[in-house]
Design a protein around this nucleic acid. Sequence first.
DNA 1: CGTACTATTGCGCAATCCGCAATCGATTTC
DNA 2: GAAATCGATTGCGGATTGCGCAATAGTACG
Lengths: 248, 248
Amino acid sequence: MTQANPSSIQVVDRLTALLEALARNRGAVGLKLLAADTGLHPSTAFRILASAVENGLVAREGSNYRLGLRLLQLGSRVASHQDLRREARPVMEALRDAIGETVNLTVREGDEVIYLDRALPERMMRVEQRVGSRAPLHVTAVGKLMLGEGDETACREYARRTGLPGYTRYSFTDEEQLVQHVSGCVRAGFAYDDEEAETGVGCIGVLVHDERGEILAGLSISAPIERRRDDWVAPLKEAAKQLSARLG
Amino acid sequence: MTQANPSSIQVVDRLTALLEALARNRGAVGLKLLAADTGLHPSTAFRILASAVENGLVAREGSNYRLGLRLLQLGSRVASHQDLRREARPVMEALRDAIGETVNLTVREGDEVIYLDRALPERMMRVEQRVGSRAPLHVTAVGKLMLGEGDETACREYARRTGLPGYTRYSFTDEEQLVQHVSGCVRAGFAYDDEEAETGVGCIGVLVHDERGEILAGLSISAPIERRRDDWVAPLKEAAKQLSARLG
DNA sequence: CGTACTATTGCGCAATCCGCAATCGATTTC
DNA sequence: GAAATCGATTGCGGATTGCGCAATAGTACG
């Protein structure tokens, strides 16, 4: 997972590895498993976990471990994009209520988009992204728009840098095709994601700009592909404009 | 803050202290300040932070630090009460829309309630609790109901254990009065909080039970005291019943 | 009741991390 | 424009801290 960089404090790396492992395994996990998962000696894992428990980062149930509630607090205090999240929420909820599908708020970080927040509809079947999770730019609607914001070179560099890994058989894995497609999306002012990240899931995404034209975020609707409708584009763009105004 | 317990790994304690300090100071903080805040040597703080940055727990802006986005992910993966949160959200949003005030979801942990989630109204003035934050039982509506669930002895023990610290001039600080008041709340099936936690803020709270009568959570409405209305009790109880049913 | 498994702890070594102090870099002041 | 001031960063050597081993306690299971 995490590479052993030279200028790192060992215990911090190990702690994060453990937290990651806990995040991966939903619910309660035993020590043995965690130790195996992180490659740590059981006794070492035990001691680090014990310390994490004392600090509330991890919770114990019997001799199983879970992520602790302190992380809730810390997570809710992440200041980056806090204004964005606060202003976006009502806009997202309204859009969700109008459309009846999941609405996502994302930002770019490096070669990925990060899901900052979401508004979920009340439906049996719905698309559910996890807050804080990541996805490569070239397999998401918003990500493709972000790729298109720079000049073509930036997009090509991205392609080479990442090798355009495919996630489904619909993912763009060819540089030329991607560049082509991206420029089309930018011209249109919105992008589709046609099962490029996950089979069966379709998206429509737009960007949110500030008055100077800088990208602030991405707003998207995710739905089972067969439910997705083209006439969501207008309300989505409208929502982005509203959000933009709120942040202005 | 955190006492130096014997069976603790130093670096983990220090890291959490740093994260706490970052959570306290919203926005970007310099190294010097963080070091002072945590009592760490600047170079030590620097190195731990550097490592935390590498692991995404902390983000840098120039030479200032913020909580990192990885914490968002971890926060959203906290498994405890995850079902509860998922099922509660639509109920909370509906209630918020009906009332037009902040709706909170809480659980008890030890002698405190923890705010698990909230639904905020679109208003200029509103009450805003932070997800993951804590408050003593005896100054919150839901907390008082939870105190009343055990027998009277439990409530008295709580009083002695905590000494009933006062937060405003309306807080209950006398054991006898608290016991009295609590039993009244339990009989009524709901509780008010009349500026007991913060001046100007009023609450109405109810409990959410499962079919066996176990307490699952607390649901409450928070508003500026002069806006609070008695006829919120019925919809609040109704919402709790709905949530209860969803979880059953 | 025994067996097999995982969680927990004592111990002694050494790797890890710490604090000092010196360097670097930026910003301010005269 | 030079110097001074302040915070961030890093090299170094020492000792503290955390480590792995292996032994023990605790638990589930047959």
